[in-house]
C-alpha cells in the first residue's frame, strides 16, 4: 500500500472565521477514513479542500504525490469523485441521465456503449434499476441520495469523497448503502473519505476515524481510540455510553453536558434489545 491522498497542514478560513487550523490527513490506497465531529467542526470544509473544490489558505493537498492544483480538472475528475450532502433538483431529469453524468470526464460529446454499461451496473448495484427512467423529482430523498452515489461510482475513480451519504436514508438503506461503498472500496482498491454523523455507522464501516473539533484534529485512529467517553464529551458536549451489541459499536448519548442539572441515567435502564433491528 502506498500513500494515496495526503493533506498537509491545511488552514482554511471562511471570511473572518478560521474553519480549519493545521489539519493533516494521510490515506493509503484502498483505505476508508471516517470523518466525524459535531456540526461546524469543519468536516465539509475539509471534504471540499480534499476535492480541490475549495482552496486552503495554507497547506497543500497531494494526490499520489502530485499537488492537486497542478492536475487538470478533467484528469482530477477521472481520479476522484464526490457525493455531496444534498443535491439540488431543479429540472426534470431521469435517474439514468443523472447517473450518466458520472461518465462526463471519460466521454466526449455523447455517451458510448461502455458508459451506458457502467451506469447500468451501478444502478443495479444500488438497486435503482426500477427507477432508472423516473424523474429525479419523483424520488424520495433517500432514493435521490443513492442515485448520487451511483453517479459517483459510475465515475470509476480511485478515490471517492462522501459528505453525509446516509443523512436522508432510513436505517435499512443506511446499512445497505455503506455496505456497497465498503464492498466497492475493497473490490477495486478505491480509497474513500466519508464524512458522517452516525458514530455507530462511522465506526463500523471505516478503517480509521478522524474526529474534528473547532477545525482541529481532536483524535485519530481506530474507532475505539478515537471515540471515547472523554473525546465525545469534549467535542459533542454529551455524555455517552459506548458499547458493543453483537459486535456492532453502539453509542448511546444520555445527557447533554452543558445544559443545566445533570442527572445520570442508569445504564441498565436502556432497552438494549431494541437498539438494533
Amino acid at each position: 500500500m502506498s500513500l494515496h491522498l495526503s493533506l498537509d497542514d491545511i488552514h482554511f478560513r471562511y471570511g473572518a472565521r478560521q474553519v480549519l487550523t493545521g489539519v493533516s490527513m494521510q490515506l493509503d490506497r484502498g483505505e476508508i477514513l471516517g470523518l466525524v465531529g459535531p456540526n461546524g467542526a469543519g468536516k465539509s470544509s475539509l471534504v471540499r479542500t480534499a476535492l480541490g473544490l475549495a482552496r486552503p489558505s495554507c497547506g497543500r493537498v497531494l494526490l499520489n504525490g502530485t499537488d492537486l492544483s497542478r492536475i487538470a480538472p478533467r484528469e482530477r475528475a477521472r481520479r476522484m469523485a464526490y457525493v455531496p450532502q444534498s443535491s439540488p433538483v431543479s429540472f426534470p431529469v431521469t435517474v439514468f441521465e443523472t447517473c450518466l453524468l458520472g461518465r462526463t470526464p471519460h466521454m466526449g460529446a455523447t455517451p458510448k456503449p461502455r458508459d451506458i454499461e457502467i451506469v447500468e451496473e451501478m444502478l443495479e448495484r444500488l438497486r435503482l434499476q426500477d427507477f432508472a427512467f423516473r424523474s429525479m423529482g419523483e424520488l424520495s430523498g433517500g432514493e435521490r441520495q443513492r442515485v448520487m452515489l451511483a453517479r459517483a461510482l459510475a465515475q470509476e475513480t480511485e478515490l471517492i469523497v462522501l459528505d453525509e451519504p446516509t443523512s436522508a436514508l432510513d436505517i435499512g438503506n443506511q446499512l445497505f448503502t455503506l455496505r456497497v461503498v465498503a464492498d466497492i472500496a475493497r473490490e477495486r482498491q478505491v480509497t474513500a473519505v466519508i464524512a458522517i454523523h452516525d458514530l455507530s455507522l462511522a465506526a463500523r464501516f471505516t478503517d480509521r476515524l478522524m474526529l474534528l473539533h473547532h477545525g482541529k484534529v481532536e483524535a485519530e485512529g481506530a474507532w475505539e481510540k478515537t471515540l471515547t467517553e472523554a473525546t465525545i464529551s469534549r467535542t459533542y458536549g454529551v455524555q455517552a455510553e459506548i458499547g458493543l451489541l453483537r459486535g456492532v459499536p453502539v453509542f448511546a448519548p444520555y445527557e447533554a453536558v452543558r445544559t443545566g442539572a445533570v442527572q445520570k441515567v442508569p445504564s441498565q435502564n436502556w432497552p438494549e434489545d431494541n437498539i438494533l433491528p
Partner: peptide
C-alpha cells in the same frame, strides 16, 4: 449545443458536483 452535456451536469447535480466532474 457543444456545451449541452456540461449544462446537464450543472442543472442536474449542482456547482460542486459539476466541478468535481471536471467542468469549469
Amino acid at each position: 449545443q457543444l456545451r449541452a452535456w456540461q449544462l446537464n451536469a450543472l442543472t442536474a447535480a449542482g456547482d460542486d458536483v459539476a466541478r468535481s466532474l471536471g467542468i469549469n
